[in-house]
């Protein structure tokens, strides 16, 4: 395996927690496939939000790749930008900012994601939270006005509230139709708006067996069920689950961020529990929390529980000591 020689930290990862990476499936291929799967959403984002969107995405990707190269150079390590993971982080981070975000904020976020969340811990496979999401939460706490409130409307120079903020009652406006939500003709951050484009990419990843169905199914299923039960204003089981699934960052989060190999469980049962946990926390935050959207926090919080999910769901061989994860 040439790959192993190139990435010392990865070799340890394989031993520790990633039996699913089999021979012939290198990290390069997985990462680039996720990037390919995100291209439809990228295209739709550029179509709806214009060149601003493209500029921010390029800023995010370039900064992430440069930061990765700079940090690895300064630590005298192998430069691993070709594996695509830094580019993917930059792309996902850009997907999580609104089109009217300043470019420097995207750059700071990308650099934070790579340097502070990933490289400090030892590079690919060593971070315990998803770099793009941790960085998004960091940006949200650092410059809240740039991250929330009035976001750009598609095909327009106006701004408006996101569907979830309207649903939440924190902002006023008319709720978009299901069709608008599905194709992405709504206000929101760059990559989350078009359910259709994201689902095309997700189908590709499922078909290529890059991701497992359990995390997204558990995640989206739980959100649908709980919002149906508790999301309505007229009592139990009057909520609108379809709206909650299509609006906000659920589809982007469930298929592309929660499934991140490094920060999600490896066992089938662990993945299901992970997805359900994400769904539970998302609904908790959406319905009763301080933010209109809870997808990114829910994944971050479940990232923290992954070592325990690994422990609890690990099949143990009789007569041997419990494996240390």
């Amino acid at each position: 395996m040439e790959e192993k020689k190139a990435m010392p930290s990865l070799e340890k990862l394989v031993v520790a927690s990633s039996p699913h990476i089999r021979a012939g499936e290198t990290v390069d291929r997985l990462m680039w496939q996720v990037i390919i799967a995100l291209l439809p959403a990228t295209a739709v984002s550029v179509y709806f939000f214009g060149m601003r969107s493209l500029c921010l995405i390029i800023t995010g990707v370039v900064t992430a790749v440069l930061t990765e190269a700079l940090v690895e150079k300064s630590l005298s390590r192998e430069v691993t930008i070709a594996d695509g993971s830094a580019a993917l982080t930059g792309l996902l981070l850009a997907f999580n900012v609104p089109a009217n975000a300043p470019w420097w904020m995207v750059a700071v976020g990308s650099a934070f994601a790579i340097a502070v969340v990933k490289q400090v811990f030892g590079g690919l496979g060593a971070n315990f939270v998803n770099p793009a999401l941790a960085s998004r939460a960091f940006l949200l706490a650092a410059w809240p006005t740039h991250m929330t409130g009035q976001l750009p409307l598609p095909l327009d120079t106006m701004t408006g509230a996101t569907p979830l903020a309207i649903l939440d009652g924190t902002a006023s406006g008319t709720l978009p139709t299901y069709l608008d939500l599905f194709i992405g003709n709504v206000s929101g951050v760059l990559g989350e708006t078009s359910a259709l484009a994201l689902l095309v990419g997700a189908a590709y990843l499922l078909w290529q067996k890059v991701i497992d169905w359990r995390i997204p199914a558990g995640f989206i299923g739980t959100v649908a069920l709980l919002t149906w039960m508790f999301g309505g204003r007229d009592g139990l089981f009057t909520g609108d689950p379809l709206y909650h699934v299509l609006a906000g960052g659920l589809i982007l989060g469930a298929f592309f961020m929660a499934t991140d190999y490094v920060t999600s469980p490896i066992t089938s049962r662990g993945r299901l529990i992970f997805g359900i946990g994400c769904g539970f926390i998302t609904v908790l935050i959406r319905l009763w929390g301080g933010y209109p959207e809870g997808v990114s926090y829910s994944i971050l919080l479940m990232n923290l529980v992954v070592p325990f999910l690994a422990r609890w769901t690990q099949p143990r061989v009789y007569g041997t000591a419990r494996a240390r994860v």
């Binding site: 930290s9 340890k12 990862l13 031993v15 630590l75 811990f121 030892g122 590079g123 060593a126 315990f128």
Partner: peptide, 8 residues
């Protein structure tokens, strides 16, 4: 999990 990591 850090035991396996290559921290600077």
């Amino acid at each position: 999990r850090w035991v396996f990591n290559d921290i600077p």
